[in-house]
């Protein structure tokens, strides 16, 4: 895939003696939506954390837009401007208002004027359907609203790729769909997304490519319907039957 936005080739990552990623490879094309699933501890979060270099991989190559990530701070700064991230625990800044959460990056890291940054922030708050919460503190919002603010905060940096690390796992069940709806809309607008999730309904709806991981390796990947209806590996079949049971 020549127009790959993110390219991982034989990436290895160890935490001490624990081998978290074993020769992991993945290509993500522009506009592509990739869903990564697998049992806990399988390394799926590590993949997204390596893509934006919150974790440094020890072996292998990661390229963003064809440029290889090195330990050079410049290369890290570069990916930070291209890759956004949404966390399981939202990680909003509790001492700032929603609007300040959204403008901090654009103003301080990008040098936007406050006025432009606020206009942009309001635009993206609109897009995640909470335009009227701008002056509240994160703690005053529901979990679902907080996660949507977090999505808007990432969007304000106008990244080429948006990473989601189990974005709905910390939410109460009734709030999951409001976050997933926003993510589906983003997907429909053509955002390149890498989503670590167990939400198979979401995967079925938007994923171009689904990766099933176990023990730091890709066990199987392909179109979601393939994996759902006709998984080749026993591990994948077992995992999917467990989470699709309910």
């Amino acid at each position: 895939m020549p127009d790959a936005v993110v390219e991982l080739v034989d990436v290895n990552k160890w935490y001490g003696a624990f081998h978290a990623l074993k020769d992991f490879s993945l290509e993500i094309g522009s506009g592509e939506r990739v869903v990564i699933c697998g049992p806990s501890g399988s390394g799926k979060s590590t993949v997204v954390r390596c893509i934006n270099q919150l974790e440094r991989h020890q072996k292998g190559t990661i390229r963003i837009d064809g440029v290889e990530l090195t330990e050079d701070p410049k290369s890290v700064a570069r990916i930070r401007s291209e890759v956004g991230m949404v966390f399981q625990q939202f990680n909003l800044f509790p001492h700032l208002t929603v609007l300040e959460n959204l403008t901090l990056g654009p103003v301080k890291a990008r040098g936007l004027s406050r006025k432009d940054a606020e206009a942009r922030a309001r635009h993206y708050l609109e897009r995640v359907h909470i335009p009227d919460q701008a002056d509240k503190r994160p703690i005053q919002l529901s979990g679902g609203q907080q996660q949507r603010v977090a999505i808007a905060r990432s969007l304000c940096m106008e990244p080429r790729v948006l990473l989601f690390d189990e974005p709905t796992s910390a939410l109460d069940p009734e709030m999951i769909s409001e976050v997933l709806d926003v993510m589906v809309e983003l997907a429909e607008d053509g955002m390149t997304m890498v989503v670590v999730t167990h939400e198979m309904g979401f995967a079925r709806k938007v994923a171009d490519n689904m990766v099933f991981m176990d023990a730091g390796e890709t066990v199987e990947q392909g179109k979601p319907e393939h994996l759902f209806t006709n998984p080749r590996s026993e591990r994948c079949r077992k995992f999917l039957s467990q989470i699709l049971q309910h």
Binding site: L54, R80, S81, G84, M85, N91, G105, A109, S154, M157
Partner: peptide, 18 residues
Amino acid sequence: IARGQSEAAQTIGLNYYQ
């Protein structure tokens, strides 16, 4: 202060000082 705070700050492009 939870680690996630500085991680979130990094992902929106803030440097160490910021």
